[in-house]
Design a protein around this nucleic acid. Sequence first.
DNA 1: ACTAACATGTAAAGCGTTACATGATTTA
DNA 2: TAAATCATGTAACGCTTTACATGTTAGT
Lengths: 205, 205
Amino acid sequence: MADHADEEAPLPLPATSWAVLGLLSFGAELSGYDLKKWADASLRYFYWSPSFSQIYAELRRLEAAGCATSRLVTPEAGARPKRLYRITDAGLAAVRTWARQAPVDPPMLKHPPLLRLWLGHLAEADDLRGTLDAHRADAERLRARAAADLALAADEPDWAYPLLALRWSERYYAAQAELAAGLRADLDAMLAARGERRATRADQG
Amino acid sequence: MADHADEEAPLPLPATSWAVLGLLSFGAELSGYDLKKWADASLRYFYWSPSFSQIYAELRRLEAAGCATSRLVTPEAGARPKRLYRITDAGLAAVRTWARQAPVDPPMLKHPPLLRLWLGHLAEADDLRGTLDAHRADAERLRARAAADLALAADEPDWAYPLLALRWSERYYAAQAELAAGLRADLDAMLAARGERRATRADQG
DNA sequence: ACTAACATGTAAAGCGTTACATGATTTA
DNA sequence: TAAATCATGTAACGCTTTACATGTTAGT
């Protein structure tokens, strides 16, 4: 039976569960708080970082499914105890099966700045310009953060794959900034052309 | 009071409501089915396209809020009636206020192919290569679809802003394909270096 | 006549967030 | 010692999807 583990269907867990179990699959014993911090520093560039409460719920679910175990640790007498989670052998086998066999969903993008521009006929031109400029600045900030996190993680042989993901992330946010700049230019060109057309009509009429 | 409409706080509706009301703000009288089709052809490139049931629920909500009205239309005697929705003056004012004043949330990305790569230590190299290649092909398909939709919408003066969004979308998916190619190259280089290091160690040991 | 695709919804289940509650630790 | 921040959770709410139910139209 153990020989056929890779051929069994993956456990029916939501993607967020696999992300959390994936964090644990690197081997460390972590608290919910630790996991949230780590997710913010790595996953969030290409996968949204779940909230604390979501992480705590996922950990309870993973433990109930036998994919993780937990123990209460009290640092000092009288201090508040914390619960540390560690992946189990069954959990490691499950996440391996998932990583090799589960279908890969398509990327999902929710881009509020673009939604605003798409409804540009409802706003003022300066509002739109401001929205795009702010979005571009955000993208550049994220690119810089990814570059910084990349420098921190470099040369750690265990993190070769997270490092690839970080390199991709830095390029992704650089591309986002460039796309924002291009869109800003297109918007200005469109508005200029529209203004000229209106002026021409006014001259004729 | 009417003069101050732009200074009032936007109605507390979720982003999806505004997206649907935004579709209606172009002026057409549409059914839930029409709206879904239109969302699939325009919004989905930069904003996920809500499901049918979600759209129907949003329409009911918008009507309850006074932002839209509906009427039942029976094409022929005995045929199944359909409900058509149209934006109201109050709805137009509300979506204008939202478009000008509501804060713009940051883009949200959920990228399962990258999540798989990030957990590359759990899978086989060929699985990862296949995942990346499939992702690249998907991105190129979406780029081509955006280009096609762009050609359909061009030269419609009312769709100037949707056109800008479509141009951005085409570039976005082109960039996605390039990023996938770059990541594939990085992966191959990493695996080659690892293989050489392992071979070197084997020679020495 | 049968099938597939089109079309319009409803109901239930689950995902995920915000708000809340609590206590420890640091800083002013 | 007061405030701010860190840290660990719980509970309630609302968004979103999947599955289901139902009827119509068009092709074969």
